[in-house]
Design a protein around this nucleic acid. Structure first.
Lengths: 345, 345
DNA sequence: TTTTTTTACGAAAACGATTGCGGGCAAAGA
DNA sequence: TCTTTGCCCGCAATCGTTTTCGTAAAAAAA
C-alpha cells in the first residue's frame, strides 16, 4: 500500500516544461521568467504539490531531523525538555526522533548508532546512569555529527552543553533544610558517574560546610539506576534508617528518586516533615498535591530543551566548523512546600 | 558540517567490482558467487558500512518511520503509550516521530499534513479535544496513508482502533463511589466531542441508573480543553459547589482533570473523601502519593501503544489492501485508594 | 546588418541504493 | 571445432530533486 504523490516531473509534463525549469521556478530562481514562475506556482498550489523530503534529503545530504536520547520519556523533567525540543525543531522544519536509553549503557550505544546511521543531522543527549565512557559518542562526534549535551553532560567531548545550576540548586535545597533546623541531612542520589550527581553532591556538601555541619558519608546514598529500580531506593532508605543516628531530613537528587522516596517513607509511616523532612529534585506538575506537598528543586526543563535545540541547529546549519563552544547554566527554582517545613510540626 | 559515510560505491572501487555486484552481494543475491559475497561482506563489516537509509527510502518509496500525534507528551498516559510505541517500532526497525497537538485542532491539522508529506509510512493518532471533523485525516487516509487511532478515536474512518474500555472503566468507578454511599456524584470531563468523553459519560450514567439514582445534568461538567486550562476546571468546580445540593463525589475523566481537581479541592480546603470523594482517570505513577492518595482508573497505556504500533505495522507491511479492521478494547484497572473511601471518615 | 550581451530554458549529471537484462566466459555437449 | 548452457557479473534505468552548464532566441550594442 503506498500512495502516489505529485512530483515535479508531473508538473513539468502538465505544463510542457522541463523538470529543471519547474524545480527552479519552485525555488524562485531568477533564471526563470515571472510568467513561467507564476504558472508553475499556481499549478503546484492547486494540485497541492509537496516536494518529496526524502529526495531532497538525499540530494542535500541531510535529513532535517534530529535525534534525541533520554533515559526515560515517562518522567516529567524529560518530557518537558522534549516539549521544548519539539517546539523549536518544529518551526525550524526539523523532525524529532526520540529514543530512550532506560538508563542502560548498552541501549544508549545502540540508540546512538542507530540514530546516526539513520542519518540524523544532529543529536541531543542526556547520558544514561550507567554510562562510564564515551567512545560511542566520541566516534560519532569525530565523524562530524553535531552533538549537544544537556543535564547529564560530559567534558570528554568538546561541544555545546546546557545544564541547570546543579551546584546552586543543591546548595539552596540543603541550606533550606538547615534553616529548618535539620542537622543530619541525608542525600539520596543517582549514579556517582553522572555529572549532575557530582555537582549536586558538591552543593550539598558545601552548604553543610558553610553551616558548620560536618558531613557524614553514611548519609550519602547512591542509586546506580537513578530510581528506576524501586528496591534500590528501598535499600538505601533502610540503611539510612538503621543508622545509630537517624537522619532528620533527606534531600533526593532526581525526579524518580523523589517520588519513590516519598512513597517509601509513607509506606513506612514516617511523618514528613516532622520526623524526616524531604526536599527533592522534581519537575512533576503534581508536586503540590503530594502528601505532603513536596518542596522541590525545579529545573527550567522547557527552556533547557529549547536552548539545546537552538544550539544544535546552530551547529548543524553553521557553514564553517564551529570552534567556540558554550556551556549554558540555567538557574533552578526552589519551591518550598510542606514536606520541608519543620516549623509546622 | 557533514560527515561522509562509506557508500556502496566506495566498496565497489576498493574491491574492483561494480556497484551492482556489491549491492547484490550485500543483499545475498544468488547471482553472486559465494567468494565475492564473502569478500564484500567482510569489507563492509570491517569498514562498518551502513546503507544510507535515505537512499533506500527513496528507492523503496517508504521511509521506515511512523508519525505519532498526541495532545501532550507531558502526561503520564501519553508518555506511557509512546513508550509502548517506541518499544515495538524500535525493534521492527522503524523510527518514531512524535508531535503534539496541544489539544488544538489547527496544530493537529498542520502536524498531520507535515508528517504525511510522504515522510512517514503511517500514523498513530489520538485526536485533540478541539477536533470536530476529520477532513484532514480522511484525505490522508484516502490517499493511502495507513492510520491507527487510539484512545480518542473516530468511526468516520475505517481503520484499526485501539481503546480502553471506557464505558466499563467509568461504570466501575461510578459504581465504586455509589458503593461508598455517594449519591450526588459529579462528572468532570473533557470536550463532549471526544469518543472517550461520550463513552465514559455513558458508563457513568448507566451505573447511576443501575443503582436507581437519577442523573442530574447539572452535575456533569465539560471542560473543552481537557484540563489544559486550569481556569476552565476551576470554573466547573465552582459551579458544582454552588449548587443547592452539593455533590458528595466527583469522578474526573482524564489525567490532567484529575490532578487539577485534586489540587483545586485542596486549595479550597475541602476534605477528601469525607466531604467530597474523588475518583479520577489517571496513569500518573504518583497517584499513590497524592494527598489523599487517588483512587484511579488506570489504562493499560503501554499495552495500547504496543498494540497500536503492531496494528499499524501490519497495515504498512501488508501486501494487499486490508479490508478487515479491528477495534481492540482493553480493560482498565480500578485502583482503590484513600480519595474515595468514605468508610474511613 | 553584424556582433555582443541577456534572458529563459533544457540536458544531464549528480545523491546512494536496487534491479532487470544482457553478455562474457568457461564447461559441457554435438 | 562449434554450439549450448549456466554462472557471474556489469550496464543502465530508476526513485524525486537540485544544480551546473550549454544554448537558442531575443535584445542591445556596434
Amino acid at each position: 500500500m503506498k500512495f502516489e504523490a505529485l512530483t515535479i516531473k508531473d508538473i513539468a509534463k502538465a505544463l510542457g516544461l522541463s523538470i529543471s525549469t519547474v524545480s527552479k521556478a519552485l525555488r524562485g530562481s531568477h533564471e526563470i521568467s515571472e510568467e513561467t514562475k507564476q504558472a508553475v506556482l499556481r499549478y503546484a498550489r492547486e494540485h497541492n504539490y509537496k516536494p518529496n523530503p526524502i529526495a531532497q534529503s538525499l540530494k542535500r545530504g541531510q535529513s532535517r531531523s534530529i535525534g534525541v536520547i533520554v533515559c526515560n520519556i515517562d518522567n516529567n523533567f524529560f518530557s518537558q525538555v522534549i516539549n521544548g525540543i519539539e517546539s523549536i525543531a518544529q518551526n525550524r522544519g526539523y523532525n524529532v526522533i526520540i529514543t530512550q536509553s532506560q538508563e542502560s549503557y548498552e541501549k544508549e550505544v545502540s540508540n546512538s548508532d542507530h540514530l546516526s546511521s539513520r542519518s540524523v543531522d544532529g543529536l541531543i543527549i542526556s547520558l544514561s546512569a550507567e554510562t562510564q565512557h564515551m567512545d560511542h559518542l566520541v566516534k560519532l562526534h569525530e565523524k562530524g555529527l553535531p552533538i549537544v549535551f544537556f543535564d547529564r553532560i560530559t567534558d570528554e567531548i568538546r561541544t555545546h552543553r546546557i545544564v541547570a545550576n546543579n551546584y546552586k540548586g543543591a546548595y539552596e535545597a540543603t541550606k533550606h533544610l538547615l534553616q529548618q533546623g535539620c542537622r543530619r541531612i541525608a542525600h539520596v542520589t543517582s549514579s556517582g558517574s553522572l555529572s549532575i550527581t557530582r555537582e549536586r553532591l558538591e552543593g550539598y556538601k558545601q552548604a553543610l560546610a558553610d553551616a558548620g555541619v560536618t558531613a557524614d558519608d553514611r548519609l550519602i546514598k547512591f542509586c546506580p539506576h537513578g530510581g528506576m529500580i524501586r528496591e534500590e531506593t528501598q535499600q538505601a532508605l533502610t540503611e539510612l534508617l538503621q543508622l545509630p543516628e537517624r537522619p532528620d531530613a533527606i534531600f533526593t537528587a532526581s525526579d524518580r528518586l523523589s517520588t519513590t522516596t516519598l512513597s517509601l517513607l509513607q509506606a513506612m509511616r514516617i511523618p514528613i516533615p516532622c520526623e524526616i523532612a524531604l526536599v527533592g529534585y522534581t519537575n512533576s506538575i503534581s508536586a503540590e498535591i503530594f502528601n505532603p506537598s513536596l518542596t522541590s528543586v525545579v529545573q527550567p526543563a522547557l527552556e533547557m530543551g529549547k536552548l539545546a535545540t537552538e544550539m544544535l541547529l546552530s551547529l548543524i546549519e553553521s557553514r564553517r566548523p564551529v570552534t567556540h563552544f558554550e556551556k549554558r547554566i540555567l538557574d533552578t527554582e526552589l519551591q518550598i512546600r510542606e514536606s520541608s517545613q519543620k516549623s509546622r510540626c
